[in-house]
Write a protein that binds this DNA or RNA. Structure first.
Length: 552
DNA sequence: ATAGGGTTAG
């Protein structure tokens, strides 16, 4: 069979031979590659075309292999260039599409009308508006602006991350466009994504015709903006559904916190026989993580494994690590981590953060050092995990060291979460004065969470005076979270200053704040934990774990 | 061979 690749040229005249259609996995791909090398790799252009197409487009996750092989092609034709650019554009590193195009130009290859849609796909994915404008210039230069595929790609780019008014102008310019459902959908998606659901809906209602994608665009638009009632209404009306339609509503429910609803929708999806895909699984894992539902999470994990792909995709692996860590099974999280063939910065982040939030501070830091050794560049999220680890370990010096390293070595400007972690580290250690000084000299304005962290630290260390100061700042921010009052009154109460506690309670009533029923105002630390956990979950999911631990 | 819809991490 393999000999056919290079010896029997006749099979390559057809669009896609049997051999290539059956080439759907890496092993076969490598076998064919080997036989091509034996027979003179660059001697058969149509085999090269098929090979690049299979490795860059047909088979998922072999784009790196495609790049390596492409580098050995002595005279790639335009089709090969387009194909490798196409595969890169939809890969995890769309930037490669742009750099390949630059190579193509520098070798005096002219782009054709196939090249540009892929380039705009890459720009849109990267949200590189400037690059997209530049490529728009090239479209004009090469005279492809009137090609309908190129124009639709342009409309899609401008609508989603370029200039919406340019998208609208392109749309209006041509009569042909006005009857093109793809152009209508692209423009609608742009308005929806940028939050203008009103205009999106008007476009949707006025479309000369609607296909499945137009419905999906509108449903997704509503779901993303949290308008689940509207999304659901359209979902019920839609004449036909595919996996994307289901994914849109499932993801919508997850993002507005209705995890149970999302899982129910999945049940329904299975009942009507729609096959879930990777995106479905990602949303479901996210729902389990939000619910803390380890049991369903494990079921999803097994069904992903049953589906059989040899190794997990990076995205699924990352989600699984996160799910296991957040649902309390850090062991399984690490097993998934160890089993992943390919890891990206998020993979490391999920594991480092998972360990850190679980109090395995040392392992977390060790993993961070492994990460640096394997030459993966940490990002700002990595350092949130690292600083959380330092805070759990009570390691002030190390925390300060990493906080500085982040800026000096990796040029990452600390964000409010990093500052929050530092305040927590200092506060936990009882360095309250230093913590206050730190907050006062921060490069950005402290938020309510920072003040609340300080307030929590003051409670632990029984500093009534500083606690009041933090509380004043907190009140100045008018967050009116009754949890803050609970904390402060607890400080007073734990020091026998019952009148102070009474006063706080009074001011709470005056502000019309009610504590949630079922919890007493001043009680055991246990209840405090529950209270704070509840209140902060409305403010910031990630920090509240920190603060929850603070009080417990 | 081309365009429009879906996704993780803090």
């Amino acid at each position: 069979m393999l000999r056919n690749v290079t010896n029997d040229r006749s099979i390559h005249r057809h669009k896609s031979s049997d051999l290539w259609q059956r080439c759907t996995n890496v092993r076969l791909l490598k076998q064919i590659h080997a036989s091509m090398l034996v027979n003179g790799f660059n001697s058969n252009a149509s085999a090269l075309r098929e090979f690049i197409f299979a490795s860059a487009v047909t088979i998922s996750c072999t784009i790196d292999y495609a790049h390596q092989v492409f580098a050995f092609i002595t005279q790639p034709d335009t089709f090969m260039w387009n194909t490798i650019i196409r595969g890169s554009a939809r890969s995890g590193n769309p930037f490669n599409a742009i750099s390949l195009y630059n190579q193509m130009e520098s070798q005096y290859f002219k782009p054709d009308c196939f090249t540009f849609p892929y380039l705009f796909k890459a720009c849109t994915k990267l949200c590189w508006a400037k690059m997209g404008f530049g490529i728009h210039g090239k479209v004009v230069k090469f005279g492809f602006e009137s090609n309908k595929f190129v124009r639709n790609a342009l409309i899609h780019f401008h609508a989603n991350c370029g200039d919406l008014s340019v998208a609208a102008a392109l749309f209006d310019q041509s009569e042909e466009t006005k009857t093109d459902v793809v152009a209508w959908s692209a423009l609608t998606a742009g308005y929806a994504r940028r939050g203008n659901l009103g205009i999106a809906r008007k476009l949707f209602d006025r479309m000369p015709e609607r296909d499945l994608v137009s419905w999906n665009v509108m449903i997704t638009g509503y779901a993303k903006q949290g308008e689940m009632e509207c999304a659901r209404k359209l979902f019920d009306e839609v004449p036909r559904r595919d996996v994307v339609t289901w994914n849109a509503v499932i993801a919508g429910y997850v993002s507005c916190g209705s995890n149970t609803k999302a899982l129910e929708m999945f049940e329904e999806m299975r009942n009507v026989g729609e096959q879930p895909d990777e995106v479905t699984m990602l949303s479901l894992l996210s729902a389990c993580t939000g619910q803390g539902d380890l049991e369903i999470g494990q079921k999803i994990h097994s069904s992903i494994l049953e589906k059989g792909s040899r190794n997990l995709s990076i995205l699924l692996g990352n989600s699984l690590i996160d799910m296991y860590a957040k649902c309390g099974n850090i062991q399984r999280a690490l097993e998934v981590f160890d089993g992943m063939m390919n890891k990206d910065v998020s993979t490391w982040n999920s594991a480092i953060g998972g360990l850190a939030f679980h109090g395995h501070a040392e392992e977390s830091i060790t993993l961070f050092q492994d990460m640096l050794r394997s030459k993966i560049k940490p990002n700002e999220i990595t350092f949130v995990g690292v600083l959380v680890a330092c805070s759990h370990a009570g390691n002030v010096e190390e925390g300060k060291r990493y906080f500085n390293l982040m800026r000096s070595e990796y040029k990452i400007e600390p964000n409010i979460k990093h500052y929050g972690c530092m305040v927590d580290i200092l506060g936990r250690a009882g360095l309250l004065n230093e913590a206050f000084e730190f907050v006062e000299t921060m490069a950005i304005d402290p938020n309510a969470i920072v003040w609340r962290t300080l307030l929590g630290a003051c409670r632990i260390h029984g500093d009534v005076e500083l606690g009041q100061r933090a509380n004043e700042q907190l009140l100045r921010m008018k967050t009116n979270e009754s949890g803050d009052y609970v904390l402060l009154s607890n400080i007073f109460a734990s020091h026998g200053e019952w009148s102070g506690a009474e006063k706080v309670r009074k001011s709470m009533d005056d502000n019309g704040l009610m504590k949630e029923a079922g919890f007493s105002l001043i009680e055991s630390n246990n209840n405090m934990f529950v209270n704070q956990f509840l209140f902060d979950s409305k403010v910031n999911k990630s920090i509240n774990i920190l603060e929850g631990k603070d009080v417990s």
